[in-house]
Design a protein around this nucleic acid. Structure first.
Length: 265
DNA sequence: GGGTACCTGCGT
DNA sequence: ACGCAGGTACCC
């Protein structure tokens, strides 16, 4: 699943291909893409230049030269594929940006949940998002303030993009493991010291995802010892810290992996 | 604050 | 053949 690290890596890979390029066409291959971006809108974007590609949380934004914005979200399985525009589109391509240099950038997504939407110049598509986890202005006290009104389990609150942008199911579990916090702890009950530790752990977990060079999809579970994931998906495997068997519970219809010995409430 | 729909590949 | 997986938006 693409979370902040995978999306950031995708942006870094795609940026040199798209920044400064002109849009020759926008193809909408799948009904979900056609619903989200009308034929008229796609046609109106022909001739626009992509000035910049940036990221906010798990969202990616193409800034166009008229100030309007194309925003992509990978959801569960999305990714970019860059091909020669003269060749056939990749399997599962849902929408394609055809560039004036002859390349095609396809949003590929087997499950077709990924989104590509257009936004006016004066729209802030990210207004409702919480802070970036690596925002220097974000400290333990600021995060604790955001958790103070939340009585739900900290695991679920970490997934709320209005609280913190970019953390998903995998890195939420990883961060709680690193911070040694029980995933079911009510968010508002966490002490200042534990929230401080949690923020550091979120950053540490995300950084592990970002620091794997040349790895296209860091969140695929493997037995590679250099793998960045310590607890996610490791049910029944020994905890890397204390050796107790990792347990799986379901929270909000999503799996959470955690260590019953070293993650206490 | 909790439940459901959106999708389709894949595991069972 | 069937039903789950899951991030987000939207429902009450």
């Amino acid at each position: 699943m693409p979370e902040l690290p995978e999306v950031e890596l995708a942006v870094r890979r795609l940026r040199p291909h798209v920044e400064g390029a002109g849009l020759r066409a926008i193809e909408r291959h799948h009904p979900t893409a056609r619903r989200a971006l009308s034929a008229a809108r796609a046609a109106a974007l022909v001739g626009r230049r992509i000035d910049a590609l940036d990221r906010r949380g798990k969202y990616q934004r193409f800034r166009l030269d008229d100030g309007t914005q194309l925003v992509a979200h990978f959801r569960l399985d999305g990714d970019w594929a860059v091909t020669d525009a003269r060749h056939a589109r990749p399997r599962h391509a849902r929408a394609t940006l055809v560039l004036d240099d002859g390349r095609a950038v396809s949003l590929v997504d087997p499950r077709a949940l990924a989104t590509l939407t257009w936004h006016r110049a004066d729209d802030d598509p990210f207004a409702a998002l919480g802070p970036e986890p690596f925002d220097p202005a974000l400290d333990g006290a600021a995060l604790r303030t955001r958790l103070a009104t939340r009585r739900a389990a900290i695991k679920l609150v970490l997934l709320d993009q209005h609280v913190l942008a970019g953390v998903g199911n995998i890195y939420a579990a990883e961060a709680l493991w690193h911070a040694q916090i029980h995933p079911g702890t009510p968010a508002h009950r966490l002490s200042a010291a534990r929230v401080e530790r949690l923020l550091g752990a979120v950053r540490h977990a995300l950084a592990r995802g970002l620091d794997e060079p040349g790895r296209a999809r860091p969140t695929e579970f493997t037995t590679d010892p250099a793998h960045p994931l310590c607890v996610y998906g490791r049910h029944d495997a020994p905890c890397l810290r204390c050796g107790a068997p990792i347990r799986r519970i379901v929270q909000g219809a999503r799996g959470t992996w955690w260590c019953p010995r070293c993650q206490r409430r």
